[in-house]
Design a protein around this nucleic acid. Sequence first.
RNA 1: GGGGCGGUAGCUCAAUUGGUUAGAGUACCGGCCUGUCGAGCCGGAUGUUGCGGGUUCGAGUCCCGUCCGCCUCGCCA
Length: 596
Amino acid sequence: MLKRTCTCGDLRKQNTGETGILSGWVNTYRDQGKGLVFIDLRDRYGLTQVVFDAEDTPENIMELGASLRREDVVTVKGEIRLRDGKPNEKLATGEIELVAKEIEIINRTAKLPILPDDHDADKIGEEHRLRYRYIDLRRPKMQKILQIRHKITQFTRNFFADREFLEIETPLLITPTPEGARDFIVPSRHQTGQWYALPQSPQIFKQILMVAGCDKYLQICKCLRDEDPRADRQAEFTQIDLEMSFVDQDDILELMSTFAKNLYKEVGGIDLGDLPQISWKDAMNQYGSDRPDIRFDLQLKDITDIASKTDFKVFKEACDTGGNVKAMRVPGGAEKLSRKKTDAFAEVAKTYGAGGLPVVKYQGGEFLTGVAKFVEPIKDELVEALGLEDGDIVMFGVGSYRVSCIALGEVRLAVAKELALIPEGLFRGLWVVDFPMFDWNEDAGRWVSEHHPFTAPLETHIDILETDPGNCLSSGYDLVINGAEVGGGSIRIHNPEVQAKVFGLLGLSAEETEDKFGFLLNALRFGAPPHGGVAFGLDRLVMMMIGTDNIRDVIAFPKTQTGADLMCEAPGAADPAQLHELGIIMREPAQTTNSE
RNA sequence: GGGGCGGUAGCUCAAUUGGUUAGAGUACCGGCCUGUCGAGCCGGAUGUUGCGGGUUCGAGUCCCGUCCGCCUCGCCA
């Protein structure tokens, strides 16, 4: 077999006269007639024009050259020369061409289901791209994404290795635990009827590595959560996971801020600027979100006190039931936002649990349209509180505390999009800190962790952990960039008694706690150092750097909404003998799903 | 579990109120063409309209069910 001497991205004018051997895929062919055929040969590194020219190419090679079609795989040996025609300025190799002297046709392609051409591949249905991922990934655009992803992991390893972090692998087959996302479970063959779980994250293991004296741990690891996917979420995803001993929250935020800023700068050429801190409470109050997008200025204000003075039924009901009324002033919105548009925003609010979206316009010193007559009595106070100016529109978020914030917060994002308030190419991030320890879950009738059960309460809040869990704040923190959570972590509980108390508050009995988390509590009893850490979502980082909203774009072999891998057709049926060996009996006969 | 959108040639799409033999571009096949580069020109082949049922003289089009894909609420400690 002919061995290539360079890649399709290498050759330049100064290589003229040399002999070169190139291997790759036929990107396109341009057959000019019997005596002249052009091939653009593609590999990961670029495109090089190969010419079959009757004056310089042997006759049998001419014939083979003319038979080439898109995506055939070939190796061509020839002479590098300047192009006879005009150079192609679109190509790095555009000044030269390889005159074919020898060719080895390694593989011809079957009829192609998709073409790996950036020009029109973006229009191809994603289903086809996923089914024939090996062709889709040949596209320069997809190769670039794989490369950026590699650069990020490479940067990460270097950054933390330089700072004494050890890369340590943790197991994939672990024990199922209550709390958190739904586990993927794996049957045990040796212990029939027992199950492994795939890790939602290496959380407990990395804490135990701290107890084991590893001091600084890093892993770029797969996490698996059997929950429904979204455009930016996949059951199987990758985290940059780390943990440190003898540190406090400031140490971690400082280190990770440096990491994030350097990463964006070096890999993406992006200036993140400063990463300020905001409390969870302020984030909710001002932005209606625990992951505020601060690239634009619209802010929410709590006007519950003022709203309670009206007779407006919607406001009154919220106020009387301990809920809240939030208001958002949209400068100039009176003209720009038609009834049709505000109705669309109302749908957004409803999606997030609000009953609707009361609006009022402020024009010529008067409240107009919408709920104008209801808020007329509090006009002066509203104008004052919101700093209303002529031509503004005000929108109200009404409901329980979280609903009033989140519904209006989502409207805030929709308004920003509608009015194009988000500057192109701008990156702004911040740390959200001081999360609540718990959130009361109505359905379950118990507290659930806002972060996870291993998150330590703020030192100053340890006193109220049990007496007032609803107001107890944790040492959890999230890094939010452009309104997306890119990472989060916390200082962990390193005291077994505190950890047991938290499990108790979460409604776990002492028995259950011992059964499910005994090994962690045990580890904490044997000299656990104070420790904390963070996990960054690798997929999200890549998404931001390349500017996509679709997580499947940044994963080589992603899954669909129903967790299928269309290429290898996972999940699939198991052999009955396998199931027997595992002691598994199907309740119903397996259904044939892929019945196209 | 709920809501929404979609599925027609290998691919991207079209097809009037239900009405003749379901079309176009591209890829593919054949022919022409010696400087192209999204090559060009001429010709050709290509369909279980996702699948199943129903209504109708007649269904790509209407109805029911189902499968697949996408977006989303719940969910994602």
